[in-house]
C-alpha cells in the first residue's frame, strides 16, 4: 500500500501542466513512503499521454483507454480499479475544476481522508499538509490520521517533472457505471472585441472599486495611460464588465509589460492569471493583501485618493 498514484489531467488533446507538477509531488511522497510512483492517464490519446508522462522518477504508467474527454464517473472508476489492482494506497490529484469533480468522490468511496489544495507537505510518520485558509491570509499545517489518503495539489507549487523515465506502461480498460452526467460540448466564453492578453499595459480593477459607477475612475486612468482595462473576478461576476476582461484562472492569463492592480487583493486564482507580468504595480488599502507579495511597486492607500492624483500626473 506504499505506492502513490498520480492522476494526470488533459483537455482537448493536451496534458495540462499541473499533471507534471503532480508527478513531482507524487515522487516526493513515494520516496517518503518507500513506494513506487504510478501515474494514470485516463481517456483521450492515452498512448501518447503515457509517453509524455514517462518522466524521470515515474515507475509505472497506467493508460486507461476509456472515452475521450473528462468524465467523473470514468475517472472515479479508473482510480478505484487501480487502487484495487496495484499497491497504490494513496492518490494525488490536481486541485483543478475537474480534479474537484471526482477527488472528493474517490475519497468518499474508499473511505480515505481528503485534503485539498495542498501547497506543500511533509511525510514522516504520517502526512502533514500545508494549505492556506481565510482567503490566503494565513497558512495552516494539517495532520492526517492514517497512512492512506487522497491529496489534491495546487498548480504552480511544485516544479514540473522533467527528463525521461523508464516506466512500465500498462494499457487497460475499466468497467464504469453509465454516466448520469453527460458532456454535450464546450464553449469559449472569453472571446469578444478586446483581447486583454495582447495589451502592453493593463489597468486592472477589483472589488475595492465598490460600486459600478466608480468604474469611470479607472476607465479614465486607463485612457490617461493608454492602457487597456481588465478586472478581477468579482467585477465580472457583478456584470460590471464582460467576461473577456477577466484576469485569472477562469479568465485570461496575461503577461503585459505593466500590470496595475487597483483594489485587487490578489487571491491565488487571480495571481495565477497575471504573475508573469513584467512589472506589477498594486494600489490597495490593506497592507497585508497578498497582491503586495508579487508586486514590484506598491501603494498602501485608498484608490479613491491615489487614482485621481495619478490621472492628474498624466493629464
Amino acid at each position: 500500500m506504499s505506492d502513490v498514484l498520480v492522476v494526470s489531467e488533459h483537455r482537448r488533446g493536451e496534458l495540462r501542466d499541473v499533471s507534471y507538477e503532480a508527478i513531482t509531488a507524487g515522487r516526493e511522497l513515494a520516496d517518503a513512503r518507500g513506494g513506487d510512483l504510478r501515474v494514470a492517464a485516463i481517456g483521450g490519446d492515452v498512448d501518447g499521454f503515457a509517453e509524455d508522462l514517462n518522466r524521470e522518477g515515474v515507475d509505472a504508467v497506467h493508460a486507461v483507454a476509456n472515452g475521450e474527454e473528462f468524465d467523473h464517473n470514468v475517472y472515479q472508476s479508473a482510480v478505484g480499479a487501480l487502487l484495487e489492482r496495484t499497491d497504490a494506497g494513496t492518490v494525488v490529484i490536481p486541485n483543478s475544476v475537474n480534479g474537484l469533480d471526482y477527488a472528493p468522490a474517490v475519497a468518499e468511496e474508499h473511505d480515505l481522508p481528503l485534503v485539498t489544495d495542498a501547497i506543500g507537505f511533509e511525510y514522516d510518520d504520517g502526512l502533514t499538509v500545508t494549505r492556506e485558509m481565510y482567503g490566503s491570509k494565513v497558512e495552516t499545517t494539517v495532520d492526517v490520521d492514517g497512512d492512506r489518503f487522497v491529496l489534491t495539489v495546487r498548480g504552480g507549487e511544485w516544479a514540473p517533472a522533467e527528463g525521461v523515465g523508464d516506466a512500465t506502461v500498462e494499457s487497460v480498460e475499466v468497467d464504469h457505471p453509465e454516466s448520469g452526467a453527460r458532456v454535450t460540448g464546450f464553449e469559449e466564453v472569453a472571446g469578444g472585441d478586446v483581447d486583454i492578453s495582447e495589451a502592453d499595459v493593463l489597468v486592472s480593477v477589483g472589488r475595492g472599486i465598490e460600486e459600478e459607477e466608480n468604474l469611470e475612475l479607472v476607465e479614465e486612468l486607463a485612457d490617461a495611460l493608454g492602457a487597456t482595462l481588465s478586472a478581477s473576478r468579482p467585477i465580472v461576476d457583478n456584470g460590471w464588465l464582460p467576461k473577456n476582461r477577466q484576469v485569472g484562472q477562469s479568465g485570461k492569463v496575461v503577461t503585459p509589460d505593466v500590470y496595475i492592480a487597483i483594489g485587487i487583493s490578489g487571491a491565488v486564482q487571480h495571481v495565477a492569471g497575471m504573475k508573469g507580468s513584467d512589472t506589477i504595480v498594486a494600489i490597495n488599502t490593506d497592507p497585508n493583501a497578498p497582491i503586495f507579495d508579487i508586486a514590484d511597486y506598491g501603494v498602501v492607500g485608498d484608490l479613491f485618493d491615489v487614482v485621481p492624483e495619478l490621472i492628474d500626473e498624466f493629464a
Binding site: 491570509k137 494565513v138 492624483e309
Partner: peptide, 24 residues
C-alpha cells in the same frame, strides 16, 4: 475527524516590492 489543524501562521511575505510612501 481524520484531520487536525496543528499550526496556523501568517505566511512570510515574499514581497520585494518597493512600497511607495507619502500622501496620495
Amino acid at each position: 475527524s481524520a484531520l487536525a489543524i496543528t499550526s496556523m501562521y501568517e505566511p512570510e511575505s515574499e514581497s520585494d516590492a518597493e512600497i511607495i510612501e507619502g500622501d496620495a
